[in-house]
Design a protein around this nucleic acid. Sequence first.
DNA 1: AGCATAAATAATAA
DNA 2: TTATTATTTATGCT
Lengths: 190, 190
Amino acid sequence: SSSVPITCGDTPTVGQLVSKPQGCTNEEGINLEEIREFAKNFKIRRLSLGLTQTQVGQALTATEGPAYSQSAICRFEKLDITPKSAQKLKPVLERWLAEAELWNQKGQQNLMEFVGGEPSKKRKRRTSFTPQAIEVLNTYFEKNALPTGQEITEIAKELNYDREVVRVWFCNRRQTLKNTSKINVFQVQP
Amino acid sequence: SSSVPITCGDTPTVGQLVSKPQGCTNEEGINLEEIREFAKNFKIRRLSLGLTQTQVGQALTATEGPAYSQSAICRFEKLDITPKSAQKLKPVLERWLAEAELWNQKGQQNLMEFVGGEPSKKRKRRTSFTPQAIEVLNTYFEKNALPTGQEITEIAKELNYDREVVRVWFCNRRQTLKNTSKINVFQVQP
DNA sequence: AGCATAAATAATAA
DNA sequence: TTATTATTTATGCT
Protein backbone atom coordinates (compact mmCIF):
# COMPACT_ATOMS: atom_id res chain seq x y z
CA SER A 1 0.00 0.00 0.00
CA SER A 2 2.89 2.29 -0.67
CA SER A 3 2.31 5.48 -2.57
CA VAL A 4 6.00 6.18 -2.43
CA PRO A 5 7.67 5.67 -5.76
CA ILE A 6 10.21 2.90 -5.92
CA THR A 7 13.51 4.19 -7.08
CA CYS A 8 16.00 2.38 -9.22
CA GLY A 9 18.69 2.49 -6.57
CA ASP A 10 19.32 -0.40 -4.25
CA THR A 11 19.04 1.36 -0.89
CA PRO A 12 15.42 1.73 0.09
CA THR A 13 14.14 5.08 1.31
CA VAL A 14 12.45 5.77 4.63
CA GLY A 15 9.17 6.19 2.82
CA GLN A 16 9.43 2.75 1.33
CA LEU A 17 10.48 1.06 4.53
CA VAL A 18 8.04 2.71 6.87
CA SER A 19 5.07 1.53 4.86
CA LYS A 20 6.14 -2.07 5.07
CA PRO A 21 4.00 -4.07 7.51
CA GLN A 22 6.78 -5.08 9.82
CA GLY A 23 8.93 -2.05 9.49
CA CYS A 24 9.01 0.42 12.31
CA THR A 25 12.67 0.00 12.85
CA ASN A 26 15.13 -1.19 10.31
CA GLU A 27 18.01 -3.55 10.81
CA GLU A 28 20.20 -0.77 12.09
CA GLY A 29 17.81 0.09 14.88
CA ILE A 30 16.67 3.36 13.38
CA ASN A 31 13.15 4.28 14.40
CA LEU A 32 11.55 4.90 11.05
CA GLU A 33 8.11 5.68 12.43
CA GLU A 34 9.62 8.43 14.50
CA ILE A 35 11.33 9.89 11.49
CA ARG A 36 8.12 9.77 9.49
CA GLU A 37 6.27 11.53 12.27
CA PHE A 38 8.94 14.19 12.55
CA ALA A 39 9.04 14.80 8.81
CA LYS A 40 5.32 15.40 8.68
CA ASN A 41 5.51 17.67 11.68
CA PHE A 42 8.50 19.48 10.34
CA LYS A 43 6.62 20.50 7.21
CA ILE A 44 3.67 21.86 9.16
CA ARG A 45 5.93 23.78 11.51
CA ARG A 46 7.93 25.15 8.59
CA LEU A 47 4.77 26.33 6.87
CA SER A 48 3.48 27.80 10.11
CA LEU A 49 6.59 29.95 10.19
CA GLY A 50 5.92 30.86 6.59
CA LEU A 51 9.24 29.50 5.42
CA THR A 52 10.05 27.87 2.11
CA GLN A 53 12.26 24.84 1.61
CA THR A 54 14.74 27.12 -0.09
CA GLN A 55 14.92 29.42 2.92
CA VAL A 56 15.48 26.53 5.28
CA GLY A 57 18.17 25.09 3.05
CA GLN A 58 20.00 28.37 2.73
CA ALA A 59 19.79 29.11 6.43
CA LEU A 60 21.12 25.67 7.30
CA THR A 61 23.94 26.06 4.85
CA ALA A 62 24.87 29.31 6.55
CA THR A 63 24.70 28.09 10.16
CA GLU A 64 25.39 24.37 10.00
CA GLY A 65 28.31 24.24 7.68
CA PRO A 66 27.79 21.87 4.79
CA ALA A 67 25.42 22.53 1.97
CA TYR A 68 21.72 21.85 2.33
CA SER A 69 19.92 22.31 -0.93
CA GLN A 70 16.21 22.93 -1.41
CA SER A 71 16.13 19.47 -2.94
CA ALA A 72 17.52 17.98 0.25
CA ILE A 73 14.79 19.55 2.38
CA CYS A 74 12.19 18.48 -0.12
CA ARG A 75 13.45 14.92 -0.10
CA PHE A 76 13.51 14.78 3.67
CA GLU A 77 9.92 15.96 3.91
CA LYS A 78 8.83 13.42 1.33
CA LEU A 79 10.98 10.75 3.02
CA ASP A 80 12.67 10.20 -0.29
CA ILE A 81 15.92 9.57 1.51
CA THR A 82 17.76 6.66 3.06
CA PRO A 83 17.29 5.92 6.77
CA LYS A 84 20.91 6.67 7.45
CA SER A 85 20.73 10.10 5.84
CA ALA A 86 17.44 10.85 7.54
CA GLN A 87 18.86 9.86 10.91
CA LYS A 88 21.72 12.23 10.36
CA LEU A 89 19.61 15.12 9.14
CA LYS A 90 16.80 14.90 11.68
CA PRO A 91 18.59 16.38 14.72
CA VAL A 92 20.00 19.19 12.61
CA LEU A 93 16.56 20.13 11.38
CA GLU A 94 15.02 19.72 14.79
CA ARG A 95 17.51 22.00 16.45
CA TRP A 96 17.33 24.61 13.75
CA LEU A 97 13.55 24.69 13.60
CA ALA A 98 13.24 25.02 17.36
CA GLU A 99 15.53 28.01 17.28
CA ALA A 100 13.63 29.53 14.38
CA GLU A 101 10.40 29.21 16.33
CA LEU A 102 12.03 30.92 19.26
CA TRP A 103 13.03 33.85 17.10
CA ASN A 104 9.59 33.95 15.61
CA GLN A 105 8.05 34.40 19.03
CA LYS A 106 10.11 37.51 19.43
CA GLY A 107 8.68 38.81 16.22
CA GLN A 108 8.50 38.10 12.54
CA GLN A 109 11.34 40.48 11.91
CA ASN A 110 13.70 38.53 14.15
CA LEU A 111 12.85 35.30 12.40
CA MET A 112 13.65 36.80 9.03
CA GLU A 113 16.97 38.06 10.30
CA PHE A 114 17.72 34.62 11.66
CA VAL A 115 16.79 33.01 8.38
CA GLY A 116 18.90 35.55 6.61
CA GLY A 117 16.58 36.42 3.79
CA GLU A 118 15.69 39.96 2.97
CA PRO A 119 13.32 41.12 5.70
CA SER A 120 10.48 42.10 3.45
CA LYS A 121 11.19 40.66 0.08
CA LYS A 122 8.24 41.63 -2.00
CA ARG A 123 6.77 39.46 -4.64
CA LYS A 124 7.89 40.60 -8.02
CA ARG A 125 5.42 42.70 -9.84
CA ARG A 126 3.53 41.01 -12.60
CA THR A 127 4.75 42.80 -15.66
CA SER A 128 2.45 44.26 -18.14
CA PHE A 129 3.54 47.82 -17.64
CA THR A 130 7.07 49.00 -18.18
CA PRO A 131 8.92 50.04 -15.01
CA GLN A 132 8.91 53.57 -16.31
CA ALA A 133 5.17 53.53 -16.72
CA ILE A 134 4.71 52.11 -13.24
CA GLU A 135 6.82 54.87 -11.83
CA VAL A 136 4.78 57.53 -13.50
CA LEU A 137 1.55 55.84 -12.42
CA ASN A 138 2.72 55.67 -8.83
CA THR A 139 3.59 59.33 -8.87
CA TYR A 140 0.10 60.13 -9.97
CA PHE A 141 -1.31 57.69 -7.43
CA GLU A 142 0.59 59.41 -4.65
CA LYS A 143 -0.98 62.67 -5.56
CA ASN A 144 -4.43 61.25 -6.08
CA ALA A 145 -5.54 57.65 -5.69
CA LEU A 146 -8.93 58.40 -7.16
CA PRO A 147 -8.43 60.30 -10.39
CA THR A 148 -11.44 61.51 -12.28
CA GLY A 149 -12.38 60.18 -15.69
CA GLN A 150 -10.80 63.20 -17.26
CA GLU A 151 -7.55 62.70 -15.36
CA ILE A 152 -7.41 59.03 -16.30
CA THR A 153 -7.79 59.95 -19.93
CA GLU A 154 -4.89 62.36 -19.67
CA ILE A 155 -2.60 59.92 -17.88
CA ALA A 156 -3.39 57.24 -20.42
CA LYS A 157 -2.57 59.63 -23.20
CA GLU A 158 0.73 60.64 -21.62
CA LEU A 159 1.83 57.04 -21.13
CA ASN A 160 0.41 55.93 -24.43
CA TYR A 161 -1.58 53.14 -22.81
CA ASP A 162 -5.18 52.28 -23.33
CA ARG A 163 -7.47 54.37 -21.12
CA GLU A 164 -9.24 51.30 -19.77
CA VAL A 165 -5.92 49.75 -18.83
CA VAL A 166 -5.00 52.78 -16.78
CA ARG A 167 -8.41 52.92 -15.13
CA VAL A 168 -8.12 49.27 -14.11
CA TRP A 169 -4.60 49.89 -12.87
CA PHE A 170 -5.89 52.46 -10.40
CA CYS A 171 -8.67 50.09 -9.33
CA ASN A 172 -6.24 47.27 -8.73
CA ARG A 173 -3.74 49.61 -7.11
CA ARG A 174 -6.29 50.69 -4.56
CA GLN A 175 -7.46 47.14 -4.03
CA THR A 176 -4.07 45.66 -3.64
CA LEU A 177 -2.65 48.26 -1.30
CA LYS A 178 -1.08 46.25 1.42
CA ASN A 179 -0.99 46.59 5.17
CA THR A 180 1.83 49.07 5.17
CA SER A 181 -0.44 51.99 5.72
CA LYS A 182 -0.65 53.13 9.33
CA ILE A 183 -2.39 56.42 8.93
CA ASN A 184 -3.88 56.93 5.56
CA VAL A 185 -5.58 54.00 3.93
CA PHE A 186 -4.43 55.17 0.55
CA GLN A 187 -0.89 55.95 1.51
CA VAL A 188 1.70 54.69 -0.95
CA GLN A 189 4.03 51.91 0.02
CA PRO A 190 7.59 52.94 0.92
CA SER B 1 -25.01 35.19 -6.01
CA SER B 2 -23.48 35.30 -2.57
CA SER B 3 -19.95 34.94 -3.77
CA VAL B 4 -17.62 37.49 -2.32
CA PRO B 5 -17.45 40.55 -4.50
CA ILE B 6 -14.13 42.17 -5.09
CA THR B 7 -15.18 45.57 -6.08
CA CYS B 8 -13.34 48.14 -8.03
CA GLY B 9 -14.51 50.78 -5.62
CA ASP B 10 -12.71 52.53 -2.84
CA THR B 11 -13.81 50.36 0.07
CA PRO B 12 -10.69 49.55 2.08
CA THR B 13 -9.70 45.94 2.70
CA VAL B 14 -9.40 44.23 6.06
CA GLY B 15 -5.66 44.19 5.65
CA GLN B 16 -5.59 47.92 5.24
CA LEU B 17 -7.94 48.64 8.11
CA VAL B 18 -6.53 46.24 10.64
CA SER B 19 -3.14 47.89 10.48
CA LYS B 20 -4.53 51.27 11.34
CA PRO B 21 -3.71 52.32 14.91
CA GLN B 22 -7.24 52.65 16.09
CA GLY B 23 -8.75 49.96 14.00
CA CYS B 24 -9.74 46.74 15.70
CA THR B 25 -13.32 47.19 14.79
CA ASN B 26 -14.59 49.23 11.93
CA GLU B 27 -17.57 51.51 11.88
CA GLU B 28 -19.92 48.60 11.28
CA GLY B 29 -18.79 46.83 14.42
CA ILE B 30 -16.91 44.08 12.62
CA ASN B 31 -14.05 42.71 14.66
CA LEU B 32 -11.18 43.04 12.24
CA GLU B 33 -8.55 41.71 14.59
CA GLU B 34 -10.57 38.55 14.98
CA ILE B 35 -10.79 38.17 11.23
CA ARG B 36 -7.07 38.71 10.85
CA GLU B 37 -6.38 36.08 13.46
CA PHE B 38 -8.74 33.64 11.83
CA ALA B 39 -7.27 34.18 8.37
CA LYS B 40 -3.76 33.44 9.61
CA ASN B 41 -5.00 30.40 11.45
CA PHE B 42 -7.05 29.24 8.51
CA LYS B 43 -4.00 29.08 6.29
CA ILE B 44 -2.03 27.02 8.78
CA ARG B 45 -4.91 24.63 9.33
CA ARG B 46 -5.45 24.33 5.59
CA LEU B 47 -1.80 23.50 5.03
CA SER B 48 -1.84 21.06 7.93
CA LEU B 49 -4.58 19.19 6.12
CA GLY B 50 -2.43 19.33 3.02
CA LEU B 51 -5.07 21.17 1.05
CA THR B 52 -4.54 23.76 -1.66
CA GLN B 53 -6.52 26.94 -2.11
CA THR B 54 -7.95 25.42 -5.26
CA GLN B 55 -9.20 22.35 -3.42
CA VAL B 56 -10.88 24.46 -0.74
CA GLY B 57 -12.51 26.64 -3.35
CA GLN B 58 -13.80 23.72 -5.36
CA ALA B 59 -15.08 21.91 -2.30
CA LEU B 60 -16.89 25.01 -1.08
CA THR B 61 -18.40 25.52 -4.48
CA ALA B 62 -19.73 21.99 -4.35
CA THR B 63 -21.14 22.06 -0.82
CA GLU B 64 -21.97 25.70 -0.20
CA GLY B 65 -23.63 26.59 -3.43
CA PRO B 66 -22.15 29.69 -5.03
CA ALA B 67 -18.76 29.81 -6.60
CA TYR B 68 -15.61 30.13 -4.54
CA SER B 69 -12.56 30.50 -6.69
CA GLN B 70 -8.95 29.83 -5.77
CA SER B 71 -8.48 33.58 -5.99
CA ALA B 72 -11.20 34.18 -3.44
CA ILE B 73 -9.51 31.90 -0.92
CA CYS B 74 -6.18 33.51 -1.68
CA ARG B 75 -7.62 36.97 -1.10
CA PHE B 76 -9.22 35.97 2.15
CA GLU B 77 -5.97 34.58 3.45
CA LYS B 78 -4.15 37.74 2.44
CA LEU B 79 -6.98 39.89 3.86
CA ASP B 80 -7.24 41.52 0.49
CA ILE B 81 -10.97 41.75 0.91
CA THR B 82 -13.50 44.17 2.38
CA PRO B 83 -14.61 43.72 6.00
CA LYS B 84 -18.15 43.02 4.87
CA SER B 85 -17.08 40.27 2.51
CA ALA B 86 -14.72 38.83 5.09
CA GLN B 87 -17.44 38.83 7.71
CA LYS B 88 -19.66 36.92 5.34
CA LEU B 89 -17.02 34.44 4.27
CA LYS B 90 -15.51 33.71 7.67
CA PRO B 91 -18.27 31.50 9.13
CA VAL B 92 -18.49 29.55 5.88
CA LEU B 93 -14.78 28.81 5.94
CA GLU B 94 -14.80 28.10 9.65
CA ARG B 95 -17.61 25.60 9.39
CA TRP B 96 -16.18 23.89 6.34
CA LEU B 97 -12.66 23.63 7.75
CA ALA B 98 -13.89 22.20 11.03
CA GLU B 99 -15.75 19.52 9.15
CA ALA B 100 -12.75 18.81 6.97
CA GLU B 101 -10.62 18.34 10.06
CA LEU B 102 -13.20 15.95 11.43
CA TRP B 103 -13.05 13.83 8.29
CA ASN B 104 -9.28 13.96 8.37
CA GLN B 105 -9.26 12.42 11.84
CA LYS B 106 -11.12 9.46 10.42
CA GLY B 107 -8.41 9.08 7.85
CA GLN B 108 -6.77 10.84 4.98
CA GLN B 109 -8.93 8.95 2.53
CA ASN B 110 -12.13 10.29 4.09
CA LEU B 111 -10.87 13.84 3.89
CA MET B 112 -10.12 13.45 0.23
CA GLU B 113 -13.57 12.09 -0.42
CA PHE B 114 -15.05 15.03 1.47
CA VAL B 115 -12.95 17.46 -0.50
CA GLY B 116 -14.11 15.75 -3.63
CA GLY B 117 -10.83 15.41 -5.43
CA GLU B 118 -9.61 12.14 -6.73
CA PRO B 119 -8.39 10.17 -3.70
CA SER B 120 -4.84 9.80 -4.89
CA LYS B 121 -4.17 12.28 -7.60
CA LYS B 122 -0.56 11.67 -8.46
CA ARG B 123 1.85 14.26 -9.63
CA LYS B 124 2.50 14.08 -13.31
CA ARG B 125 5.65 12.29 -14.18
CA ARG B 126 8.40 14.70 -15.11
CA THR B 127 8.76 14.85 -18.87
CA SER B 128 12.11 14.44 -20.46
CA PHE B 129 12.40 16.22 -23.76
CA THR B 130 14.78 14.83 -26.31
CA PRO B 131 17.61 17.15 -27.36
CA GLN B 132 16.00 17.30 -30.78
CA ALA B 133 12.70 18.41 -29.30
CA ILE B 134 14.43 21.04 -27.17
CA GLU B 135 16.11 22.37 -30.26
CA VAL B 136 12.84 22.66 -32.13
CA LEU B 137 11.13 24.26 -29.15
CA ASN B 138 13.91 26.80 -28.82
CA THR B 139 13.62 27.67 -32.47
CA TYR B 140 9.94 28.33 -32.06
CA PHE B 141 10.62 30.23 -28.85
CA GLU B 142 13.09 32.51 -30.54
CA LYS B 143 10.55 33.36 -33.17
CA ASN B 144 7.71 33.78 -30.71
CA ALA B 145 7.93 33.41 -26.95
CA LEU B 146 4.17 33.73 -26.56
CA PRO B 147 2.53 31.32 -28.95
CA THR B 148 -1.23 31.25 -29.17
CA GLY B 149 -3.24 28.26 -28.14
CA GLN B 150 -3.54 27.26 -31.75
CA GLU B 151 0.21 27.46 -32.27
CA ILE B 152 0.89 25.43 -29.15
CA THR B 153 -1.42 22.72 -30.39
CA GLU B 154 0.41 22.60 -33.70
CA ILE B 155 3.85 22.48 -32.10
CA ALA B 156 2.73 19.72 -29.76
CA LYS B 157 1.39 17.77 -32.69
CA GLU B 158 4.57 18.20 -34.68
CA LEU B 159 6.75 17.05 -31.78
CA ASN B 160 4.30 14.40 -30.68
CA TYR B 161 4.21 15.65 -27.10
CA ASP B 162 1.22 16.36 -24.92
CA ARG B 163 -0.19 19.82 -25.55
CA GLU B 164 -0.15 20.74 -21.86
CA VAL B 165 3.47 19.73 -21.57
CA VAL B 166 4.37 22.06 -24.42
CA ARG B 167 2.34 24.90 -22.94
CA VAL B 168 4.12 24.56 -19.60
CA TRP B 169 7.47 24.38 -21.38
CA PHE B 170 6.86 27.83 -22.85
CA CYS B 171 5.77 29.17 -19.45
CA ASN B 172 8.90 27.92 -17.77
CA ARG B 173 11.10 28.99 -20.65
CA ARG B 174 9.83 32.55 -20.38
CA GLN B 175 10.40 32.38 -16.66
CA THR B 176 13.96 31.21 -17.04
CA LEU B 177 14.78 33.85 -19.56
CA LYS B 178 13.28 36.53 -17.38
CA ASN B 179 15.30 35.42 -14.39
CA THR B 180 18.48 35.36 -16.40
CA SER B 181 18.20 38.52 -18.38
CA LYS B 182 16.72 40.92 -15.81
CA ILE B 183 15.26 42.81 -18.71
CA ASN B 184 11.70 41.95 -19.34
CA VAL B 185 11.44 41.10 -22.99
CA PHE B 186 7.74 40.40 -22.80
CA GLN B 187 6.55 43.80 -21.76
CA VAL B 188 3.30 44.65 -23.37
CA GLN B 189 3.87 47.78 -25.31
CA PRO B 190 0.86 49.74 -26.45
C1' DA C 1 24.60 14.95 -3.95
C1' DG C 2 22.62 18.67 -6.14
C1' DC C 3 21.72 21.23 -10.50
C1' DA C 4 18.41 22.26 -13.94
C1' DT C 5 13.92 22.53 -14.92
C1' DA C 6 9.09 20.34 -15.16
C1' DA C 7 5.00 20.55 -12.52
C1' DA C 8 2.15 22.50 -9.01
C1' DT C 9 0.56 26.23 -6.27
C1' DA C 10 -0.23 31.11 -5.02
C1' DA C 11 -0.89 35.79 -6.41
C1' DT C 12 -2.65 39.22 -9.47
C1' DA C 13 -3.78 41.96 -14.02
C1' DA C 14 -7.64 42.18 -16.59
C1' DT D 1 -14.01 35.62 -11.74
C1' DT D 2 -10.69 34.01 -15.20
C1' DA D 3 -6.44 33.67 -17.28
C1' DT D 4 -1.91 34.36 -16.68
C1' DT D 5 2.37 35.46 -14.18
C1' DA D 6 5.33 34.67 -10.03
C1' DT D 7 6.92 31.48 -6.77
C1' DT D 8 7.66 27.08 -4.74
C1' DT D 9 8.09 22.20 -4.84
C1' DA D 10 9.53 17.91 -6.85
C1' DT D 11 12.34 14.97 -9.70
C1' DG D 12 15.14 13.24 -13.83
C1' DC D 13 19.50 13.12 -14.52
C1' DT D 14 24.60 12.66 -14.02
